[in-house]
Design a protein around this nucleic acid. Structure first.
Lengths: 239, 239
DNA sequence: CGACCAGTTGAATGGGATCAATAGGAGTGG
DNA sequence: CCACTCCTATTGATCCCATTCAACTGGTCG
């Protein structure tokens, strides 16, 4: 291996991954130089998806996972009646596309909520590498396990207030983990989309945000969010 | 390798796994003799759990996955208020315990709904084997992926009728896949538990089952279920 | 047999949906 | 720059599905 090109690539990866989605996928694992190079082989970086464009579509063939570098996405499935059902929102540093593993084609459609940048990872190659790199295999399963568990944090047994409080706390938590502000952020989704995801009417989302505003829990204007009292929000989330 | 003992063990496995949970985990993969023997090493078969006993408990250390040979389980988490929230029901041939992968301790408690028999699989060893056996790794991820996807089949956007119809269809489907009857089975859980899982009051479950009975969609008495019109049930599930 | 629990059914209440009207940005074109 | 349109968000009024409270029934088990 000639060291000059290698270290150049390495610098690129370091530079790229420092602020990037793969952060959560790679860096915590303490990869060696060779392992990082191996991992870099399967990454086609800098795929740009404009607002409203599809990253992948339901029933299309599954080949890739996507790591979000910047921007945000929603995933949704189309029910028998033709109505959409939003199944998740994805922020920088998060992986999406796992829905396609089992039947071999995607179960949901992914749309960019704003102009976004993603890394494309070939799943087959990722698995091959995972079987060699200690911890990567477990890390992937951990992501899936965690995602399954988190499903129940916004549950059928919670009322509208609790669901919205939990939703906001979830966003806050995820922004914080990526180094963004935990109390001030812009929603990239509409009230309609939040409502669809939480099983509420958009009017209910509006009304409860108004209530939270009156209670001094948060300030909001359109899609700008400023959480004033995280403690109160947590109390509300618990009922 | 001395062939006599090997083939004896193999016969045991074949005999055991033919009617067993691991069916779905091992057999579809087309394992070689050596691979089956490897896999057998990590299985402690025939763990019996009586009705009401815990298989594992929330916050306890995670080490094992469990494959159900016979019987059934529910998993639940205890909320901040101290109320239970049932997160899943598990039938013969299904794996449980994945909830503990990420933080390293279980996120839910698993209780037997009837006297049950399970295989205990050491997760670390399973991963090691998975990194060697082509397909097993992907198979494990497929299980997790599928489970995540299925979460949305019983969703916040469905009314009580739809949720119960979907719940019954899900049970029917799963029984059928294991070779049991798709239209006649005993529920091992109470109305209360079904309601908790679906986010409904037990009275609502009762009422809607009564409605289905009146409509000739099913016959039921206590926990005995006999689905008469799967087509109508599917229509109801879709709304 | 009696106690207890699960299941069923009825009546009243309430949370959130729906329908409807208005307000406020954002984008477009003159 | 303003006028116009379109879409999202907000707020009010009414309705309905599911919950809650309550009474009763049937099964199971000591």
């Amino acid at each position: 291996m000639n060291s000059q090109p290698s270290s150049k690539i390495l610098d690129n990866i370091r530079q790229a991954c420092g602020t990037c989605s793969l952060n959560s996928l790679c860096l915590p694992m303490g990869l060696s130089h060779e392992e990082m190079l191996t991992l870099d082989q399967l990454v086609k970086r800098q795929l740009i998806v404009n607002k409203g464009e599809y990253l992948f579509r339901m029933e299309h063939h599954f080949d890739y996972l996507y790591a979000i570098r910047a921007g945000s996405f929603k995933t949704f499935l189309v029910s028998e009646k033709g109505t959409d059902q939003i199944t998740g929102f994805y922020l920088p540093g998060e992986l999406l596309g796992f829905d396609g593993i089992e039947p071999g084609h995607h179960q949901v459609t992914a749309v960019a909520l704003e102009t976004s940048s993603v890394c494309q990872l070939k799943f087959d190659e990722l698995l091959q590498i995972a079987s060699k790199i200690q911890g990567l295999q477990r890390h992937l399963m951990a992501i899936l396990s965690q995602r399954f568990n988190n499903q129940f944090t916004i549950s059928v047994n919670h009322n509208a207030e609790q669901r919205i409080a939990r939703f906001l706390l979830s966003l806050s938590e995820r922004f914080k983990r990526r180094g963004y502000s935990a109390d001030t952020f812009n929603l990239t989704m509409s009230r309609q989309e939040i409502g669809n995801y939480l099983g509420l009417a958009n009017e209910t989302v509006s009304r409860i945000l108004a209530k939270f505003r009156e209670q001094g829990i948060l300030e909001s204007h359109q899609r700008e969010m400023h959480l004033l009292d995280l403690r109160a929000l947590q109390m509300t989330a618990c009922g």
